[in-house]
């Protein structure tokens, strides 16, 4: 479904060039749930933006559904860390925004999309809130609206950039369970960025560990724990703990050629 071959990204920063990503070879199968984990600044968002077609790679090739990515595709949706809702739009019309922008290209009637929007809002427990404005909702509710918006056109691929990281622990657990439920229902391919090891393990079929500066693929870890899994209470605590421990070690490990830890390099 998603294929990256030798993908690299170099930015022209103020202090010279920054290699954000290097030699990324990744193949995400249809219906797979892949989480990307790595320290902040290691190029996770950049990788998602490359797949989304928001940024052309400086080297290598990105393919989605067998076609080279040249720009944003309508069957790929992006979800951000912040809800990114338009404050003047009601919950319902925020969810309908993608349909409204891409007029004509839809394969359903507007009414059908509207029904779908109501369905999705119900799925995440927001029935009755359709006419509210975003500022009347809690952060968790806003992020749920954002989730519905990214699902409205039945995307084949969902790219999620730390979507739950700004939420409190409980909401986060709830939302990750809802996401798994939706995922099982829709068989969407999901690439999910996080910096939480536990979240990465609980959600993923495979975890991709990135190294910082430049972002390279450190390791890909298969997660064979049966679903549904839960962030909070877990029937497979020992397995999760074992894999989490391994990921922790991978993230903490420094590559031999790296002189100083990243955080030291970053602070000026």
């Amino acid at each position: 479904m998603i294929r990256l071959d030798g993908v690299g990204q170099v930015f022209d920063g103020r202090e010279g060039q920054v290699t954000a990503l290097e030699k990324i070879d990744l193949h995400v199968r249809g219906g797979e749930f892949v989480t990307l984990i790595g320290r902040s600044g290691c190029g996770k968002s950049t990788l998602l933006r490359l797949i989304a077609g928001l940024l052309p790679p400086t080297s290598g090739a990105v393919q989605v559904a067998g076609e080279p990515v040249t720009g944003p595709r309508r069957d790929v949706s992006f979800m951000f860390q912040r809800p990114a809702l338009l404050p003047w739009r009601s919950v319902l019309s925020n969810v309908m925004l993608p349909v409204e922008i891409d007029k004509g290209a839809g394969d359903r009637s507007k009414a059908a999309y509207r029904d779908r929007a109501h369905q999705l809002l119900e799925l995440v427990g927001l029935q009755g809130f359709e006419r509210r404005l975003p500022h009347e909702l809690s952060g968790g509710m806003q992020q749920r609206v954002s989730l519905c918006r990214s699902l409205i056109r039945d995307p084949q691929v969902m790219l999620m950039d730390e979507p739950f990281s700004a939420l409190d622990a409980l909401t986060r657990t709830e939302l990750s369970e809802e996401l798994q439920r939706i995922k099982m229902e829709l068989s969407t391919t999901i690439v999910f960025v996080t910096h939480s090891i536990e979240e990465a393990v609980v959600l993923a079929d495979r975890v991709v560990v990135l190294t910082p500066r430049p972002g390279r693929m450190r390791e890909v870890v298969d997660i064979d724990i049966p679903r549904p899994r839960s962030l909070g209470q877990n029937a497979h605590l020992t397995e999760v703990a074992a894999i989490s421990g391994r990921l922790h070690a991978l993230l903490a490990e420094k590559e031999s050629d790296e002189v100083r830890p990243v955080d030291e390099v970053r602070s000026r």
């Binding site: 928001l54 944003p72 992006f78 990114a84 338009l86 003047w88 922008i101």
Partner: peptide, 25 residues
Amino acid sequence: PTELVELMRSLNASRVQEFFKLRLR
């Protein structure tokens, strides 16, 4: 806000849509 601009871009909004549906509002 940049995330709203990025959202519109990810939805393949035209410049005109970006202007009227986002920036001006």
